[in-house]
Every structure is written in structure tokens, then in C-alpha cells.
Simulated scan of single mutants.
Amino acid sequence: MPYLTLKDGCSLYYKDWNTSGTSPVVFSHGWPLNSDNWDAQIFSLASHGYRVVAHDRRGHGRTDQTWEGNDMNTYTDDLDQLLEHLDLTDVMLVGHSTGGGEVARYCGRHGTKRVKKAVLISAVTPLMVQTDSNPGGLPMSVFDGFREAMVKDRAQFFVDVPSGPFFGFNRPGAEVSQGLIWSWWQAGMMASFKGTYDCVKAFSETDMTEDLKEMQIPVLVLHGDDDQVVPIDSSARAAVNLLPNARLKEYPGAPHALPNICAQEVNQDLVAFLKE
């Protein structure tokens, strides 16, 4: 399995599929998951002839569980080292949830010299937490509740989230996949307790308003209008008004987990956007 030793000594795991393919696509996953959550997308795109790369963020999956560095700036610095290591250019960055924030902060912090397009899926941009300047955000008590639940019983909390709002399985008539619930739980429990605890602050309190404004590249924003984790009004609908060159596609009735619940449609949208 390929690993990259980062500048601080952290060992970063990544997948690099179809290395002879064209138009590289790089995926950033959500909290508290890892690159496996993208398998439906990276298998599809690699099968269509594209080179695909997906990494486990520090503190997640098979990457080292560092005590420090569990913040959005460090995540993007890690991503920049990976793109440099693989010498990738003309990249399409794709991020889901926290990974969408990572994509936006990467473009704002490191520029777009290696990036030609970006896709934000159920992304936490521009800012999740409620503030005076972001009155539509979620109260801090929501994220404090995440941290309290982790400290009390992380294993049970990591059952409750996928059993309910993440996949939309708490909605009447939802077709529940126990396999997806187990898969989410396994990935979450595989991750660092400290890393996932710190990441709650990273995904909820990092303001990416200015990062979005700097993204001059074409951006596709995909979001379910029944997202119970990252409500669409204060995220995608707000982000698309900050992005200079973006369009929003709303998935009617869809939950937060678009790459899983709406995998085929997401795959089609990614390929279509790549071909534009």
C-alpha cells in the first residue's frame, strides 16, 4: 500500500488507481471516514479512463494518528505535499463534507496552479457554526453535543449517526442498509479519537468565505435538499453565491451521504463535469 512521509514525519496513506489514466481526480473524504468511502466513485472514474487518487486524512483510516495538526490548514498542507509528490497537474479536486472544506481551503491557501476544476459535495463551506455574521449556521451546542457524545461513548455515537441523519435512514420509508451503517462505524472507530474530536472544530468553525471567493476555477456544487447534517441553505446555497464560477445541482430529497446513497448519479455528474 502506498504511503507518503510528510514533512512532520506523519505517514499518509493514499490510493492511486489507473496511474496511466488521464485528467487526474483527487478525492477528500468526510468526517470521520477515510478514502474507502469514495470507492464507488474512484472505481467508476478509473474504469472510465481517469487517474484517481484518494487519501486518508491524518488521524483517519490508515494514516498516522498525530496528536497535533488536526486542523484545516494542516489538512490542506498535507494534500499539497501529496499533489507535489505525485506531480499532479490539471487536477479536479472533489471533496465531501469536511473534504469539501479541505478543497476550498486548499485553493485559498495554496492556489490553483495544479487545479483546473473542483467539486463540492455536501460540503461544510462556507461556515457551519452560527455566528453574528452567519446567523443561519448551526448553534455551537450542536458541535459541543458531538464532542460530549464522543467522550461519553464514541462507539454508540458512531452507531447513532449513520443509523439516522447521515444516510437519512431516520426518514419514513427509507431503505436502510445495515452494511452502510457497519461500514461507517468501522471507519469511524478505526480513526484516531483525538483526530476526530479535533476535527469537529475544524469542520464546524473554519470560515472558508474568503477561500471560496478566491476559487476562480469552475466549481460544481452538489447537495441534497434533505441534508440533516449540513443543511443546504447555509452551505451550498450560500457557497454558490460566493464562488465566482460555480453552479449548484440540488438532489431532491437526498441526504448528506450523496456518494453512497446517490452513487450512480454522483458518478455521472462527475464524469460529465470532467468532460466539459
Rank of each mutant, 00 (worst) to 15 (best):
M1N: 13
T5N: 13
L6N: 03
D8G: 08
Y14S: 04
K15R: 15
D16H: 02
D16G: 03
S28P: 01
H29D: 11
A40E: 10
I42F: 11
L45W: 04
L45F: 03
S47R: 12
H55I: 04
H60W: 01
R62F: 09
Q65C: 09
N70S: 13
E84V: 07
E84R: 01
H85C: 09
L86I: 09
V91C: 09
H110I: 01
T112K: 14
T112L: 10
K113C: 07
K113F: 06
G137H: 11
P139F: 11
S141E: 14
D144Y: 10
K152R: 15
F157L: 15
F167L: 00
E175W: 00
V176P: 01
S177F: 07
Q178L: 11
T196Y: 00
D198L: 03
K201P: 00
T206M: 07
T206S: 11
T206D: 05
D207K: 11
V219P: 00
L222E: 01
L222D: 01
L222K: 07
H223C: 06
D225N: 15
V230L: 08
V230S: 08
S234D: 09
A236D: 04
R237L: 10
A238H: 13
A238Y: 09
A238M: 10
A238V: 13
V240W: 06
K249D: 06
G253A: 14
A257D: 07
V266K: 02
